[in-house]
Amino acid sequence: MEFYTFSKDKGIKISNFNSNFIMSRIIQMQKEVQIGCIYLEEDGIIGYHQAVVPQLLLILNGEGYVRNEEEYFKVIPGDAVFWKKDEWHETKSEIGLTAIVIESEELNPALFMSHKL
């Protein structure tokens, strides 16, 4: 399990075409990819299982915990959690959270995002 950040302070200011916004790059894909939005309600859980393909979980709001085979880690908005194929993991939240999940054989978040310290 690896931790990255896509928080606003890691983004770049875009001004092309009279634009005025900050963008945090996340991933670029050439192969098949599946993207979904996960809504964990209060006391919600994504049960302990192996990743079928590499997975990237982007926490948008709320908070919760992810775990690997050994321990739990707190996640908050702006956190990105990466699991390699076959890696065991679980996600849970006491108060609820919303996240985007990206799944693809080609995932390499280190190309665009900084590791979380």
Rank of each mutant, 00 (worst) to 15 (best):
H49G: 09
I22G: 06
K74L: 06
K31F: 13
S7Y: 13
I45Y: 09
K31N: 15
G64N: 05
V53A: 14
V66L: 07
Y4L: 07
V53G: 08
W88D: 04
A51Q: 04
Y48L: 00
E105V: 11
Y48C: 01
E94T: 11
K116A: 09
G36R: 04
M29S: 12
I38N: 12
W83S: 03
L57S: 14
G44N: 00
E106F: 00
N68M: 08
I22R: 10
A80C: 07
E106V: 01
I100M: 12
D43T: 07
I26M: 00
G47Y: 14
K8T: 12
I46L: 02
F6W: 04
K116W: 10
G64M: 01
V66S: 08
M23R: 12
F82W: 07
Y65R: 14
S7K: 15
H89W: 01
I22L: 15
L56A: 10
M1A: 07
F82D: 07
T91Q: 08
S15Y: 09
K85G: 08
W88I: 10
E87P: 01
K31Q: 13
K13W: 05
L117S: 11
Q28I: 00
H49Y: 10
S7W: 14
S15C: 07
E69S: 13
V81I: 15
E41K: 12
M113C: 11
L56Q: 08
S19Y: 05
E105K: 12
A110M: 10
C37K: 14
K84P: 10
I59M: 14
T98K: 07
D9G: 01
L111C: 14
L107N: 04
R67P: 04
E106D: 03
F73H: 15
G11F: 02
H89E: 03
S24T: 07
V101P: 06
V101G: 08
E87H: 04
K92G: 05
T91H: 08
L97M: 14
